[in-house]
Amino acid sequence: MIRPLVLLLACGCSLSPAESVIEGRVTLPQGKKAPVMAKRYEIVTKGGVLSTNPPVAVVYLEGDFGKPASLPLRSIVQKDYAFIPSLLPVRTGTKVEFPNEDDTYHNVFSFSPAKRFDLGRYRPEDKPVPFQVFDKPGMVTLRCDIHEHMRGIVLVLDTPHFVVTSPDGKFRLTGLPAGNYKLKAWIDSRTTLEKPVSLSGGGTVKLDFP
């Protein structure tokens, strides 16, 4: 699945003259191999090649930013036997819904310590759309109990300042307050890079993660 080129919408912050910008590039790992859907015991199966997601990273500013009054509802869709988007960064406390847009059951679940849940089997027309509130920071791996190959990640962060890179690794974080912070790049479950960054109010800082 080709992701929209750059997802720079996550912060929900508007840029004022006193706010800073960090932009740069994260060197991304090689793409994962496309999964193989095990369908040996399904009498009726569809043909087709499963889609893959290009690797992307999440860049975020770590610091003490207080608690938000409200958070926007986010969504991860199950479509064509895949989670879309396959990687969703959210702020701690965000409600994420999981609409099913396939013409078959899905059963989203997670065994991750940051959020352990099982939504059970549900249809596209089932209302309300099943959801979870991600109230603890950490990485939550999403799976489907029916379709073993499906994988998704919700990255729960204690900051409002985060962004998903483009597939070529480029990122741009806007609306950042002045101060000394750590800028982190989450690349996968085993790899999070970090660099100190000093923002003096206004201007653009260039920073790459090799």
Partner: peptide
């Protein structure tokens, strides 16, 4: 998991 020909040929041992 192995993959070739732009993911057109894929195999997985489990």
């Amino acid at each position: 998991t192995v993959s070739a020909y732009d993911d057109q040929v894929r195999a997985r041992l489990s």
